[in-house]
Amino acid sequence: MTQSSAPKNLQNSLITYARSTKKMLKNMMEDHQKSLDFLSNQVSELTNKVLLLNAEVLKKHTDPFLHRPFQTHGFDCTDIKDYFGTNSKAPSGIYIIQPEGTHFQFEAFCDMDYRGGGWTVLQKRIDGVIDFQRTWLDYMDGFGELSGEFWLGLRKTFCILNQKNTSFMLNIALEAEDGSSAYATYDNFWIEDEKTAFIMHVGRYFGTAGDAIRGYRKEDNQNALPFSTYDMDNDNCYPACSFNGTKITSCSQEKSRSGWWFSQCGLANLNGVHRVTRGVDISGIQWDTWKENNTTIKIKSASMKIKRTHYPFK
């Protein structure tokens, strides 16, 4: 090697070393930033959970006696309303009911103010305090707080709907983020037993929110289909179906692990993540036939209520 080439080789080596060091530092900084982003997301998620838990605890401690059940028994909330008769009005609240033909009692929330009263509330979403990303067992037995957000439970709902000589209407009440409201009502609502995974049946639709249960296309139709959760997949996506142009195998997994009567996956899902509270723009509470200017409404609160349309006990 000549004396003149030595400095040049040394210079090249230094340049190569500098470049590799720069690349290494850049990779380290990118990895560090990814770690910071991950930790930041974890902290945000934990903060949201703490805020929701604090709200729930505060709600319980500030009003400990308001939501005790009325010691009035009936087959369901319509029966209790009829028992009070025209002489006095039953207030809305938690009652003890025992559907005809069953051997156990349970508490239920009776809405005595909405459209003439006598409604047994099956589901209620308000503020996102209660997590609806639940297992099959949770959806069968029920969860949440009857004084706030809850799912009554498929077993209890089956007992109410399958009393002798009765038929029920289902009312879906919806409120948008801007405060506007809409509803969907179905007559002849009932569900089959646990062996069939609680297949749902609805009759005629009327209302202002659109018939999201049947949807627009054959594959949207959720009527006469079983209930699904992320750990009990009974939807129509076997072995796979197309959703928003993507192949999926589970509607519950696609819909944030919520439980519902899915069909490839359908236009209705009232048990999705509470988008307003959680601050995320994902599937959310769905009733996709409720539109304004061809844009689907973002839903803040929802409820499912049933009421008798035939009264054999009068």
Rank of each mutant, 00 (worst) to 15 (best):
S242K: 12
N244H: 09
E292C: 04
I248W: 05
N294H: 14
T296A: 12
W290Q: 00
F243Y: 10
S242Y: 11
W290V: 01
G259W: 07
G272K: 13
G259K: 09
S256G: 00
W260N: 05
R278D: 14
V273Q: 04
V280E: 15
Q286P: 01
W261H: 00
G266F: 07
V276N: 14
K255L: 07
F243I: 07
H274P: 05
F243K: 05
S283G: 11
V280D: 10
G272V: 14
Q253G: 12
I248Q: 06
A268K: 04
K247R: 09
N294C: 10
G279D: 15
V280C: 10
G266Y: 07
Q253A: 13
K255W: 06
K255F: 11
T249V: 03
S250D: 05
I248N: 02
I282D: 11
V280R: 14
R278P: 04
E292D: 08
N269M: 10
N271S: 06
S250Y: 01
V276E: 14
E254A: 15
K255P: 02
S250P: 06
A268E: 08
Q253D: 14
T277Y: 08
D281S: 14
C251T: 04
R257N: 15
W260G: 02
T249G: 02
T246F: 04
Q264V: 13
V273A: 08
I282N: 11
F262I: 02
I282M: 09
W287T: 00
V276W: 14
S256W: 02
L270H: 03
K291Y: 02
S283H: 11
Q253S: 13
V276H: 14
D288R: 09
G284Y: 01
Q253H: 15
W290E: 01
L270F: 05
C251D: 03
F262V: 03
T289E: 06
S252N: 05
G266S: 07
A240L: 01
A240G: 09
I285Q: 00
W260S: 08
T289V: 04
R275I: 11
Q253L: 13
D288K: 11
T249Y: 02
W261M: 00
T246L: 09
F243D: 03
C251G: 01
S283V: 13
N293D: 15
A240P: 07
W260M: 08
G266A: 10
N244E: 12
S263N: 14
S283T: 13
R275S: 15
V273N: 05
S258Q: 03
N294L: 14
L267Q: 07
C251E: 02
C241V: 10
S250T: 03
W260R: 00
L270P: 03
